[in-house]
């Protein structure tokens, strides 16, 4: 049916896609120009020469390399924690006879619905009391807490659909509780792991507000806050700022293209559930 679609529609959509991607192309173009003048006076002209030194400035003066490492660490550790803790808790809550199950479920639903504004004011005090201020853990643990509710609910819903026999077979084989949780549970939940990992990674990679409020040490900044810091220290060095922005965008988009299927599925399942 859809195969009979008019070619003009495809053409119009291709034009629209070009318009949508134009701002990013403008960033990459500008990042290769040798001066501010060229960026803003001739915004759509090709650079007079390819000024790769802008990228060197973004990495050396803008610390993009260190921000990138921090972002990767924060994202990786947050995903690991959310997947493991989420699967454990979700499995427990999938058992009808788990004590206080409705109360715990309600707490996770509340955690899912609460906007970040509800707790950001006093989160600083918590981080300080735990001595986490200005470290990567000041982001990893709150991000984990933010992503856990949906993870727990998704895992719990999935485990209720699994036949009980799966577990019973494992137990008959004499597997201990610890080994069950450590080695058997996660492979069992593979479809949900992908969804949870994608949603958690998108959040941790792009989060800005908590990072803005709780990380002031240069060495613990992630890409979003780092980029803002770079912008504030180099307000008028547009080619270098655009080089920084295109570095971040290229890394993000590369990840997106590689994991495209999982991202689409993750976003849909996260939204619909």
């Amino acid at each position: 049916m859809a195969e009979r679609r008019a070619p003009w529609l495809t053409l119009a959509l291709a034009l629209l896609a070009a318009v949508v991607l134009a701002p990013l192309a403008w960033v990459v173009l500008g990042s290769l120009k040798p001066s501010n003048l060229e960026v803003f006076d001739r915004p759509f002209a090709a650079p007079s020469r390819l000024a790769w030194e802008n990228y060197a400035r973004a990495v050396d003066e803008g610390h993009m390399g260190s921000y990138l490492v921090n972002s990767l660490l924060v994202t990786g550790l947050t995903v690991l924690l959310v997947v493991v803790l989420g699967a454990w808790a979700g499995h427990a809550l999938s058992k009808r006879r788990f004590p206080l199950r409705p109360v715990f479920l309600a707490l996770f639903v509340l955690g899912l619905a609460l906007p970040v504004e509800a707790y950001l004011i006093h989160l600083g005090g918590v981080l300080e009391a735990l001595g986490l201020h200005d470290s990567l853990w000041a982001l990893i643990l709150p991000y984990t807490a933010q992503s856990l509710p949906l993870a727990v609910l998704l895992f719990s819903a999935y485990f209720t659909t699994l036949p009980r026999e799966l577990e019973e077979v494992a137990l008959l084989d004499g597997v201990s509780t610890a080994r069950f949780y450590l080695t058997i549970l996660l492979p069992l939940a593979r479809p949900v792991v992908a969804t949870v990992a994608v949603l958690t990674a998108l959040h941790a990679w792009n989060e800005f507000l908590l990072a803005l409020l709780f990380v002031s040490d240069e060495r613990a900044k992630t890409l979003p806050v780092g980029m803002i810091a770079f912008q504030q220290s180099h307000t008028t060095d547009y080619p270098a700022l655009l080089a920084g922005l295109s570095l971040i965008s290229l890394v993000s988009l590369a990840g997106y293209v590689v994991f495209n299927r999982q991202v689409v599925r993750g976003v849909v399942e996260g939204a619909v559930k």
Binding site: A89, L93, F108, G111, L114, L120, Q146
Partner: peptide, 16 residues
Amino acid sequence: FFLPALVVLGVFVLVP
């Protein structure tokens, strides 16, 4: 194995 998730949610979201 259930508690760690609850503790993290509690400490970093529900308590504040």
